[in-house]
């Protein structure tokens, strides 16, 4: 995934990379805390339920320090400009699907996701893409839930077809 990343030539402290170091340190602290409350249930192994998490947390702490050093030296690859708009469309679609799945059923929820993802890539005509997505997902629902017995949540549309 990182194959075409180009290392930065400017040796300048990288704020975002410091953020990563901070995140790793926080994760490490969380694991330390969680491991500390585990009780050593009678076992003949000296390696108990808390041992491995503690080791992992220690290594993460080490990686956090290493990341911070690399960030200071500006060793992180140069990042391309990220456009937030399309990302928001896709994330919005996923959130919407998550919220609607149980009430509106598979087809409508996933149809919305379909339309919003298409919108992220430039197809913004939602009045066309939403019905298209719902129809497509209804066909998928018929195939997988109807014929292949997969249990996919049913909503009003699906119930209409079942009756």
């Amino acid at each position: 995934m990182s194959g075409n990343a180009i290392p930065s030539t400017r040796a300048k402290a990288d704020k975002a990379a410091f953020g990563i170091a901070l995140f790793l340190a926080a994760l490490s602290a969380l694991i330390f805390w969680d491991a500390s409350r585990l009780q050593a249930v009678a076992s003949y192994s000296r390696v108990g339920p808390a041992t491995i998490p503690t080791v992992i947390a220690a290594c993460l702490l080490g990686l956090a320090v290493w990341t911070a050093v690399a960030a200071r030296a500006g060793d992180f690859p140069r990042r391309e400009r990220q456009e937030i708009g399309p990302v928001a469309w896709v994330v919005g679609g996923l959130v919407l699907q998550m919220l609607c799945l149980k009430t509106l059923g598979f087809s409508i929820a996933t149809g919305l996701l379909f339309a919003m993802t298409a919108a992220a890539f430039g197809k913004r005509k939602l009045h066309v893409t939403i019905p298209l997505g719902i129809l497509l997902c209804l066909a998928i629902w018929l195939l997988f839930a109807g014929l292949l017995q997969l249990s996919l949540p049913a909503g009003p549309l699906e119930h209409l077809l079942r009756r």
Binding site: L101, A118, L150
Partner: peptide, 26 residues
């Protein structure tokens, strides 16, 4: 691309929902 990636996400979530239809999993 719009249709390809819309299809990929439909497909990816379909699998997850089919295996375990839970909002938490999504």
């Amino acid at each position: 691309r719009p249709w390809l990636y819309a299809g990929i996400l439909t497909f990816a979530t379909l699998g997850t929902i089919g295996a375990n239809p839970s909002v938490f999993e999504l």
